[in-house]
Design a protein around this nucleic acid. Structure first.
Lengths: 219, 219
DNA sequence: GCATGTGAATGGATTCACAGCT
DNA sequence: AGCTGTGAATCCATTCACATGC
């Protein structure tokens, strides 16, 4: 297979994050029957610069038509392919607490390329139950088996910060290659395993910082 | 009151996000009885550059002692003050679905400067109940009353994307001045209201992008 | 001696502006 | 004429490296 773009991994995470946003917008445009869209139109939707959108897309090839714009359907398919969600990836969530349960039933985590295979927990009370949408809670001691049998690539860590490191190490050992970590700690990483951290508290503190400055008459 | 630092709002969001992280680390260091810490020590904890930490802190004054480092307790107090969490800010969550309920009981949202006053929803089934930790679900039609009576500054939007814009507009009208939005849409913003978006799906797609590249033998 | 605080240098990401194609 | 694709220019964040002070 001929590789169109050399140096693929040189695409920044900022760019891939925006691709996700573009994809959502294209899905919407497709649903309302729009055939073509220009970078300028897309830019207006999210207060972005049109050149940035063109640059982002240019990382993967030339999809537009000069004088016209981008074909919505074609571009959407291309983004789906580039983001690697043209096939389904299996996920386990570790920690069947409030957050883990909520994420298990979160629609965006269980559609269009992602499938949550199981919740894992070591609380005997929870094991054997299911989330509202029917995802089973399995004994965390069976993590390795669940990961292998379900061909799980991604794990979501939704345990308390004290447990997170050992949970992470266990997941890596079980063969997981990507982790979404909700525990507010800096994990000691294993090379070859991609980790993304989501720190919910930081967002609140950032808002608080802003509020304080408003009070102080700065903004 | 004399302002130490001119041009305060010129602190980037990247910096404030890191301040939150430093604060968490200082809290830990304090709990294990450490009195003093250097920028280099802090940097090692999160694979950061020590100069960056010093620069981040320098936005707010000079807290260190040359040849020694930073006093853990003093620096912690200062960060708490700068982040504006030296007093409690009240929050409402709109949407008592899986996510809203989970966030209501999330420890990091209900401690150290934040208090969740209520969940709001327009589903009659849910109104009158409480979350596990006892936060009441109130009729969303009473949003304005709840916001005013509880002196709510921050709202968390945890409704579906279709409803998010009108919920946002209602919150702004009710007097909320900061919003944490979990709905995957680009809100049309009102000036004077600070918004932060948390897009959970983007994180998964970013991991997927990486997985695809690993498969393709790029990384 | 040692670690801060900071101007200067670097490195990335965004934006500009225009050549090139339809 | 209109819009893409892209080198050049700009802007912002990070890192270096050192003067300053304990």
């Amino acid at each position: 297979m001929a590789s169109r773009t050399p140096d693929k991994e040189a695409v920044s995470e900022l760019t891939t994050a925006r691709l996700s946003v573009y994809l959502r917008s294209l899905t919407y445009l497709e649903s309302i029957g729009k055939k073509t869209v220009s970078s300028h139109e897309l830019a207006e939707r999210f207060h972005l610069n049109s050149a940035q959108i063109r640059k982002d897309l240019a990382c993967f090839g030339e999809f537009g038509t000069r004088g016209v714009g981008y074909d919505v359907c074609t571009l959407k398919k291309e983004l789906v392919r580039e983001l690697g969600i043209d096939r389904t990836r299996n996920i386990v969530i570790i920690g069947a607490g409030n957050l883990g349960m909520a994420l298990a039933d979160y629609h965006g985590f269980n559609s269009n390329g992602f499938h949550i295979a199981a919740l894992l927990d070591n609380d005997g009370e929870k094991i054997g139950r299911t989330s509202r949408s029917g995802i089973p809670v399995i004994d965390a001691s069976r993590t390795e088996k669940v990961v292998r049998e379900n061909n799980v690539e991604i794990a979501i860590i939704a345990v308390n910060p004290e447990a997170a490191q050992s949970v992470y190490d266990g997941l890596v050992h079980a063969g997981v290659v990507a982790v979404l970590n909700f525990a507010p700690i800096q994990l000691r990483l294993t090379s070859g395993v991609k980790v993304r951290n989501v720190d919910l508290r930081i967002n609140l503190e950032s808002l608080s910082y802003h509020l304080k400055n408003v009070e102080d008459g700065v903004a």
